[in-house]
Structure formats: C-alpha cells, structure tokens
Nucleic acid binder design. Structure first.
Lengths: 219, 219
DNA sequence: CTTACTTTGTGAACAGTTTCACAAGTGCTC
DNA sequence: GAGCACTTGTGAAACTGTTCACAAAGTAAG
C-alpha cells in the first residue's frame, strides 16, 4: 500500500466492485480481469486498475484478479471486517424504514438504538427496537456507537449533529435536506433525495431544449 | 445563457443555493453577495459566480444578487416551474416511506401511483394511494408519468427499469443497491445508502491508521 | 463630480481525475 | 523452453472542475 490520497469517487467505486464481486463469488466465479469487472460496473479497465493500485498489488498479470482475494482485500480496505454500531436519530418515516433495511446488517452495520424527540413515540417499538427519548442521546451514544444516521427534520438536524459529535461519534449519515457543519475529524455523508429529484428535473427540462443532453449517473 | 456543458456537481450546488435562498426569502432577505451565499453553502464565492454564470448574468456589481430574482431563475433552470408526475415502483419500507415525504411535493414532485409485484399488497392503501399491480405498469406510466422511483429489491431493479424505459419514462431515481443500465436519453440517478455507509466505514477505519484523514462531504 | 468602497463576471492558472499506452509478468501450448 | 496470447501496473497525457486575480461596473457619501 502506498500513501497517496484516495478520492471520494474511488471509495464509491470500491463499494461497487465489492458488491459485484460478492455476487460473482456466490456464483462460483474464481477469477476476473479488470476489463470484465469494469464492464459490469460501468467504468473502464484502467480505472479499476488505478483504483486498486492505490491500495496494493492484487492482480496477476495474464490472469486477472482472484475473486476471493479481492473480496477479502476490499472488505479490509473499506473497514468492513468489523461490526459497526449504528444509531438512528428520528423515528419518522425514513428513520423507521431504515431500521428494517436488511442490506445494512449484511455489511456489518447494526442499528442498535433509535431516538425521537416526540414523547408520544418514546417507548414504542419499531422493528424490534424501543424508541428512546432524545434526552438519552449522549448517554447511549457514549456507550460505543460508531455511526449515527440523522433522519430528523431539516431545522433540527444541525443541533442533533452537534450533540452527536460532542458525544464522541465520528461518523454521520445525514438524510435531512440541509447543509451540515461538522468539525474536522468527523466524517459526514449526505443522502439528499430531494436534490437527486431536482437533478432529474434539470436533466429532463434541459434535454427538451438541447439536442443531446442524456445524463447517466455512475453506478 | 451560453451553451457550455454543466457538470453534475454544478447542478447539485444549484439545488443547494435554491434551498438556501428560499429560506432567506422567507426571512425577508432581499439581496445577497456571492460570498454570503457561498459561506452558507460551504463553497467559495468564485464557485457560486462560475456556477451561475453558466446560465446568465443575474448579479449586480457592487450589490450582489436579488434573492427573489435568483430564486425564480434557479427554479426555472432546474425545471421546477412545473408539476412533475412521479410513480413509485416497490411498496416496501423505503417505497412507502417516500410516499409520505412532504419535501417532494413542496418542490413540485407529485407521487401519483405506487406499484408492487406482491399480489397480497395490491389494492391496499398507503398514504392515500392504492397499491397497483406491476402488470399495470406500462398502462399507467403511459398516462404521462415523468419520473419513476425504483424501490424494489436489487435483483429485480434492472427488469423494472427496462419496462419503465420502454413505457416512455425518461427520468429514473433508483434506490436499489445495484448498477443499472439505461439507454442514452434517459436520466438516471442513484441513491445508495449502503454505499454511503461504506464510505463512512472507510473514513473511520482509515482515520484510525493515518494521522489526518478527516472527510467532509460537500453540502 | 469625484473618490472610496463593494461585488460581479471571467480568462488564466491550478489541481484533481480519468484515460491512454506500453513495458513487464504470467500461463498455455507445442 | 520458446513463442504466443493475455493482463496487470503505471508514468504520461488529456480532460474536467476549482480557485485565483483583476478589469469593469455599480453604490454611497461628501
């Protein structure tokens, strides 16, 4: 492994590679070229090789990559070799939908707590978890939660994030449609569905005006 | 407006600007400099001006931008001056959660139909919409649906997309954690929550090893 | 009207990412 | 083991997106 910096897009592609390789592994495929992987991920062979080369030398010339080995390496690179303890703040529609999302658990992300500010919800059960009061946020998060998913209305998101950060959490996934500030050293990712719809709106509206404005998102 | 190409990141920022400006407009702010806007959006003044300059000349030198005017312009640029007719395919947890998401409707995205392959769900009501059979997909979509949100399990997503595209829909928002192919001329956007979590995992895992690996997502 | 100050719009410089192109390594066959 | 077909890893080139820096244009005050 060399010490070059790794871009966000590279990390995104690594996730994609891993997902695909896991499927192939289940299908019993043992070896794969960068070209075959690239084709299935909608990228190029050179891109695949560059991405992987940031972390080491995993391929065999003339042969390609061992699927098993690459799955192992990618899981290690992405930090998926361990159990990540996750909490959800906000037991609204989105927050609750995430509680039951099996894909998270499959990759080692275990949702262990869910909070809501609404006293009438506190104590109720959702997908096997009892909704806790936001008053208990600091106490519970301090017990070793790694990642918090923020699914509260936009106007409260920043204050929730501030509390979460001061409770020592260093990874945040934000679903509130607003820009959040976190101190350096805290990783923040945003899922903004309204923004994606607006991007579609833009693509559709402008493709009507300009002759060729096809937009294809990566992976 | 000049004919330069507009990057995905620019479009994303335009959404952000619009959201912020709408808030300021509600607060009665009438005028704003690129620097003030940039600061609130986590970008730079030059970036704001470059983004806007792709579409026209909206500012007044020495003064800044009129909030009202810019809101109008951005809505027009993003194609938000109209009602977009949306359908959701997949009435699972995520699909149903989206039906009740008020933010969509606020920006002009109206969810008018929801489909599921599960016969036992068909006919049931969710958030005021009756779940329809996927057999009716082509017929209903042909009635003028602009955008389809795909919220089905990954292994069925591609076949749903193929049907949706051949029904004439040209905008797709995909929540299935898989890479989809669409023909040129169809706009596809992906929301991949598992991938975002993996990016957090990467950031957290590697910040433990390397001295300074703070990751701050834009927006 | 003139001066001082503010802010835009944009060409040019810079930085980051992707693609190209090819030497070097590997397996297979004869 | 020599020749052939294939594929990797990577420096260099091309491309894309961001930041800089400044002329031009506007406001405000005296």
């Amino acid at each position: 492994m060399n010490g070059k910096k790794v871009s966000e897009s590279t990390v995104g592609r690594l996730s994609l590679y891993l997902r695909l390789l896991s499927e192939l592994q289940a299908d019993g495929v043992s070896t794969l070229s960068s070209d075959a992987l690239a084709r299935r991920c909608g990228t190029t062979a050179a891109q695949v090789r560059k991405d992987l080369s940031l972390f080491g030398t995993f391929g065999k010339r003339g042969l390609g990559y061992s699927v098993d080995e690459l799955v192992t390496e990618l899981r290690s690179i992405l930090g998926l070799g361990r159990r990540w303890r996750v909490a959800v703040v906000g037991a609204g529609r989105i927050g609750v939908a995430l509680l039951g999302y099996e894909d998270f658990r499959k990759q080692g992300f275990y949702i262990e707590a869910v909070f809501d500010a609404d006293r009438t919800k506190v104590g109720q059960e959702r997908h096997g978890l009892v909704i806790q009061s936001e008053d208990e946020l600091e106490e519970v998060l301090g017990g070793g939660i790694d990642i918090v998913i923020v699914a509260v209305p936009a106007q409260w998101a920043q204050s929730v994030v501030d509390r979460v950060v001061s409770a020592g959490v260093r990874g945040i996934l934000n679903f509130a449609p607003t820009k959040l500030d976190v101190p350096a050293g805290v990783a923040l990712k945003n899922v903004n569905m309204a923004m994606e719809l607006e991007a579609l709106s833009y693509a559709l509206a402008s493709s009507g005006k300009r002759p060729r404005a096809a937009v294809r998102a990566r992976g």
